[in-house]
Amino acid sequence: MSEPSQTTAASGQATRQDKATSTKPAIEIIGMHKWYGDFHVLRDINLTVGDGERIVIAGPSGSGKSTLIRCVNRLEEHQEGQIIVNGVELTADLKRIDEVRREVGMVFQHFNLFPHLTILQNLTLAPIWVRGTPKAAAEATAMHYLERVKIPEQANKFPGQLSGGQQQRVAIARSLCMQPRIMLFDEPTSALDPEMVKEVLDVMISLAEEGMTMICVTHEMGFARQVADRVIFMDQGQIIEQNEPEQFFSNPQHERTKLFLSQILH
């Protein structure tokens, strides 16, 4: 279990350091706070994600993980601090939000495929209407990604006809069709039956191996060990601890991290 993860983690780190020195960061979050009404849900978040870096966020339920990554493509708005994605700072400006959303793909816990459209239509919708890609080209891209997630034969079915694992792979392909520079995953496997988790994780691992910038909220610690450059632990709306996976798992520092890991890894 731990042998392959060591090697990949090392290579991942190498990539990150290359990129971190050569280009500007993909995501930069500086002193960010968010409130839901009076509820201080995110507190003093500072996080820089380099180009090509893979981050895993873990933490107890309700700790603000979803809220944090939803702020990155402005499904939620923050009240204090800065979020800069691909050099564009997120403000109330709709144009900037559109610009960011085009470059950031998101995969949800409950897939959120469009049930009234076929798989192929789900995949081509945004390329056609957002990017202005000709239909033929969009379909070619879509088929390419469907092959990558290994379900090209389902192209003309409707989402309701697919298993959960297949639906989640379609959802990943749908995001990839926009050729995003960053992918966000919000517990992509936690609504799946155990036997389907692997097929989705495999897709995510291969994405990571190609150097996609990723932020994954997940409790799949094997996945974290294997592909993450950094693991971030959140609790009570703040980042409690972050480290390379090896260090994080073998030598957690903060009491809360230890407690959480002991519960999750038993």
Partner: peptide, 24 residues
């Protein structure tokens, strides 16, 4: 979730309504 998925794909409000919400 349908609105959110459409938003995160970058669809603008008009397209979101016309292509995703209203048909459903």
């Amino acid at each position: 979730g349908q609105t959110e998925a459409a938003q995160s794909l970058g669809l603008k409000e008009g397209d979101r309504l016309r292509l995703v919400i209203v048909p459903q």
